[in-house]
């Protein structure tokens, strides 16, 4: 990625020397350093158990760093401004049934901004805008369990967009989606004007959406670079239990369109 000049706004996400051990003593992160500039789309790749989810839960202060720091758009993640941090970091969890807990889509999307104190027409406008961004505006009054899986995933994205986050964090966004839903979600994500950190195993999807990728392995960032280069390095992938799908050749894929 091009380096950011000095006058740019602070990076959307800055992780410095982050280490964390679970209360049972199992250490998951051993000093993670990661900077994501505003507007970037970065894929966070890594095998199961690499600490990806643990890292994600540090970004909005669910876990508290054992050592090191996390800063979101200049604001350090700490107890006293947790509410603002959680508004700035929008996490879309893997199972939309966990994320959508209100009786109707509209109320679910309204939950975040309403918790932040928005009411009335302003709240309604925010909900409509977020649902329109993911193409689900006409489903506002449906209960989430009457939607298809792909639709629920899109509504889950809307629930987070409604908070107008600084950075969108997606946990395995392509899991359980059929190819059409996958493509629809990719189109939606590409159209968003927001910083994206995408946690995934789905290497082609990472390549399609994210110009830059980092590999998290055994609790540290093992590689950081253009997605195409990382995926072209079979030795690097092999060392971290990552594998391309059968027949997929990164060098044969046209360069993804930039923003």
């Amino acid at each position: 990625m091009s380096t950011q000049p000095r006058k740019q706004p602070p990076p959307s996400l800055e992780v410095r020397g982050l280490a964390y051990a679970y209360p049972d003593g199992h250490q998951a992160l051993f000093g993670v350093d990661l900077t994501v500039a505003r507007g970037e789309r970065v894929a966070l790749l890594g095998p199961n158990g690499a600490g990806k989810t643990t890292l994600v839960l540090h970004l909005n202060g669910i876990h508290t760093a054992g050592a090191g720091s996390v800063t979101v758009a200049g604001l350090p993640v700490a107890k006293q401004h947790l509410a603002e941090i959680r508004r700035r970091v929008g996490i879309v969890f893997q199972d939309p049934d966990d994320q959508l807990f209100m009786p109707t889509v509209r109320e679910d999307v309204a939950f975040g901004p309403a918790t932040a104190g928005l009411r009335g027409a302003e709240l309604e406008a925010r909900v409509v805008a977020a649902l329109t961004q993911v193409g689900m505006a006409e489903y506002a009054d449906r209960p989430p369990h009457h939607l298809s899986f792909g639709q629920r995933r899109r509504v889950a994205v809307a629930t987070v967009l409604a908070m107008e986050p600084e950075i969108l964090v997606l946990d395995e966004p392509s899991s359980n989606l059929d190819p059409a839903s996958r493509r629809e979600l990719a189109d939606i994500l590409r159209a968003l004007d927001v910083t994206v950190l995408m946690v995934t195993h789905d290497l082609p999807y990472a390549m399609e959406l994210c110009p830059r990728a980092v590999i998290l392995s055994e609790g540290v960032i093992a590689a950081d670079g253009p997605t195409r280069e990382l995926l072209g390095d079979a030795e690097l992938l092999g060392a971290h239990r990552l594998e391309l799908p059968f027949g997929f050749d990164p060098s044969a894929v046209p360069v993804p369109r930039g923003r």
Binding site: L57, I91, D98, E107, F111
Partner: peptide
């Protein structure tokens, strides 16, 4: 376990113990 995950998702969207009045 689902309850725990839902609670996590709620906290991530700023839940602090009270439901906002939407309607």
């Amino acid at each position: 376990e689902r309850g725990e995950r839902v609670h996590l998702a709620m906290m991530s969207r700023g839940y602090t113990g009270t439901m906002p009045v939407i309607d």
